[in-house]
């Protein structure tokens, strides 16, 4: 009973709590980083240096009036934010934060479950989140959201292909679809896959930016053109769900990237003897640290680059990234057979 129900439920609660608070502080971090890059201070009012800002934001969003446009499709307008958030959260079911730890005399693995098709699970669940964007834009019954939800769907579908392709080349290298096995394979190889598959990593990062609608690919919500994008008509908690999903997705892709390319929970420099003490730090700390670094890259890019145009983004996806990912896959497969 304890093994079957209590521990998994407890793990889910921990993961969801951790992810949600990470999202809240991710927003603050983003605003702070943006501000520092842009010679501003960022939020300063709520708490010292604005550290309580996320709490204030959440309170505000929860207590806000929930406005639904009169001409909106009532059912889908409510469904859309839910459809965006749920897939983003349940992806964490297979993300390994570490190997295992001992608590109250029990061996507890630091992941909710280890599916032998973990990677496919992530890809397929993530693809469901797309419906939220499309339906949200359509249900608002307004032109700007519709345009941007079209952009969103086309963009995500395109970049999904490239990203999945890079993941496939990693599967070829690692010989498994399970995220835990992939990290263990990296441990066995003694090298993180980012060094074996640098091209795949670059494609993955670009594709991840595009899939999460982050700058410079944040077309679906291009403030300057579409005034907010698919969630223009949303307010209050429904809007908060879209927001939550966006940042959760960022954490998801970073976590997947860390697992696939940066050795997951493994400590760096494991082969350097005088740095062996790094291995004493718990794995989940390394995992969080690496995820944080990847997320910071997202923020840095957002503060630096202008935005792509829709057709250019499509060209980049279909004519550059996908062929490159295909070639990379073919090369990895051939090398795998030869070596």
């Amino acid at each position: 009973m304890i093994d079957m129900v209590v521990i998994p439920v407890f793990k889910m609660l921990v993961v969801i709590t951790a992810v949600l608070s990470a999202v809240a502080y991710m927003v603050l971090l983003e605003r702070k980083v943006q501000a520092w890059v842009q010679v501003r201070l960022g939020p300063m009012r709520v708490g010292p240096h604005g550290v309580l800002q996320p709490i204030a934001d959440v309170l505000k969003l929860i207590t806000k009036e929930d406005v639904r446009p009169a001409s909106a499709d009532r059912f889908l307008f409510t469904l859309a934010p839910i459809l965006v958030v749920v897939p983003a959260l349940i992806v964490f079911a297979v993300v390994p934060f570490g190997t295992s730890t001992t608590m109250f005399g029990k061996e507890i693995s630091l992941y909710i479950t280890d599916l032998d098709i973990g990677l496919l699970y992530i890809v397929s669940v993530a693809s469901i989140g797309l419906y939220g964007l499309i339906l949200g834009g359509w249900a608002s019954n307004s032109k700007y959201p519709l345009l941007s939800s079209l952009r969103a769907s086309a963009q995500i579908v395109s970049y999904e292909v490239a990203v999945t392709m890079t993941l496939v080349s990693l599967i070829v290298t690692a010989g498994s679809l399970s995220l835990v096995e992939i990290v263990k394979a990296q441990e066995a190889h003694g090298v993180w896959y980012v060094f074996i598959q640098p091209v795949a990593f670059v494609i993955f990062v670009i594709g991840a930016l595009a899939e999460t609608n982050r700058a410079p690919f944040d077309l679906p919500e291009a403030e300057q053109e579409l005034v907010g994008g698919f969630h223009t008509e949303y307010s209050g908690m429904r809007f908060a769900l879209f927001f939550l999903a966006e940042y959760t997705n960022m954490i998801v892709v970073s976590a997947v990237g860390v697992t696939m390319f940066l050795g997951g929970w493994l400590a760096p420099f494991s082969s350097v003897s005088w740095l062996a003490w790094l291995g004493l730090v718990p794995g989940w700390v390394w995992f969080s640290l690496k995820t944080f670094l990847l997320l910071s890259l997202f923020l840095w890019i957002r503060a630096t680059l202008p935005r792509y145009r829709y057709d250019q983004l499509m060209r980049l996806g279909w004519k550059v990234l996908i062929p490159l990912a295909l070639v990379n896959l073919a090369v990895s497969a051939v090398l795998k057979v030869l070596l």
Partner: peptide, 16 residues
Amino acid sequence: HAMDIGAVTVFLYCLR
């Protein structure tokens, strides 16, 4: 102009 194209940072630098 830069902000319209998405480079928000340039906007703040210019105004500085």
